[in-house]
C-alpha cells in the first residue's frame, strides 16, 4: 500500500496513471450524469410542495456538495504539503482551486434562481448563504495568492496555510442551518439519518452527485497533468516524452 502510494507520488508515475484514468472516468461521468439528468428532468415526479421548481435540487445540491468536498480535498493536500513535503499535493491543490471556485459559484447562482420563486427572494444574508459566499472568497484568495507570488515554494506554502486555516469554514457551512435561525432548510441527505426525500427522487440525485464528483476528478487530473509538465519541464522524463 505504502509502496503504491509512494510510486503514485512521483510526478512521472502520476502523469502516466492520470492519463490512463481520464478516459475511464469520462465514460463513467457521462453514464452517471446522463442517468441523473434523465431522472432529474423527466422520470422523477414533481414535488408535493414546490412542483417542478424543486428540480433545481439536482444541480444545486451536487454543486454545493462539490464546493465543500473540493475544499476538504485541498485542505488534505495542504496538510500533506506542509507536513510531509509531498510535491504532488501542491499540484493537486493548484489544479483543484479554480474548479472549486466554479462549483461554489454554481451552488450560489442555482440556489439564487431556486430561491426567487420558492422563498420569494434571490438572496438573504442568512448563515448558510453567507458562509458559502465566504467559501467562494477563500477560493478566490487561494487563486489570487497563487498568481501574486512568483516564487513557487513560497506560493505553495502560503496557499497551503490559507487553505488549512480557511477549512474552519467548512463545518460552519454544514452546521449553519442547525446553529442559527436561517431561511435555508436543513440537510435532506445526511450520513446518519434516513434521507428526507422519496426514493424515486433520491437515486437521480445520488447519481448526479457521483457524476459531478467524477467530473471533478477528470478536470482536476487534466489540470494536474498540465501543472506537472510545467513544473517538471526541465527533468529528463518530460524531455523523453517528446522524443
Amino acid at each position: 500500500m505504502y509502496a503504491f502510494l509512494y510510486k503514485l507520488a512521483s510526478p512521472k508515475k502520476f502523469y502516466q496513471m492520470a492519463g490512463q484514468l481520464i478516459p475511464w472516468c469520462s465514460g463513467l461521468a457521462i453514464l452517471l450524469i446522463g442517468y441523473g439528468l434523465l431522472g432529474a428532468l423527466v422520470l422523477s415526479p414533481a414535488d408535493y410542495q414546490q412542483g417542478d421548481a424543486y428540480r433545481i435540487i439536482y444541480i444545486h445540491v451536487p454543486s454545493a456538495f462539490l464546493s465543500m468536498f473540493i475544499y476538504l480535498m485541498m485542505a488534505f493536500c495542504a496538510l500533506l504539503s506542509l507536513v510531509w513535503r509531498i510535491k504532488l499535493a501542491d499540484v493537486v491543490l493548484t489544479a483543484s482551486a479554480s474548479i472549486g471556485a466554479w462549483f461554489t459559484f454554481l451552488a450560489l447562482i442555482t440556489g439564487s434562481i431556486w430561491g426567487k420563486p420558492m422563498w420569494g427572494t434571490w438572496w438573504i444574508w442568512d448563515a448558510r448563504l453567507t458562509s458559502e459566499l465566504i467559501l467562494g472568497f477563500l477560493y478566490l484568495g487561494v487563486i489570487a495568492l497563487k498568481s501574486a507570488i512568483p516564487n513557487r515554494e513560497q506560493k505553495d506554502k502560503a496557499s497551503a496555510i490559507l487553505v488549512l486555516v480557511g477549512s474552519i469554514n467548512i463545518p460552519i457551512i454544514h452546521y449553519s442551518v442547525y446553529w442559527w435561525n436561517t431561511l435555508h432548510q436543513g440537510a435532506t441527505i445526511s450520513r446518519f439519518a434516513k434521507p428526507a426525500i422519496a426514493p424515486s427522487m433520491l437515486y437521480p440525485l445520488l447519481s448526479m452527485i457521483a457524476g459531478f464528483l467524477v467530473y471533478y476528478v477528470i478536470v482536476m487530473l487534466i489540470k494536474a497533468r498540465t501543472e506537472v509538465l510545467y513544473r517538471e519541464r526541465r527533468s529528463t522524463w518530460v524531455k523523453e516524452l517528446f522524443k
Binding site: P45, D47, Y48, W119, A196, I197, A198
Partner: peptide, 8 residues
C-alpha cells in the same frame, strides 16, 4: 420550506 421532498 423544510428539507423533505416527495411526490404528491
Amino acid at each position: 420550506h423544510d428539507e423533505k421532498y416527495m411526490p404528491p
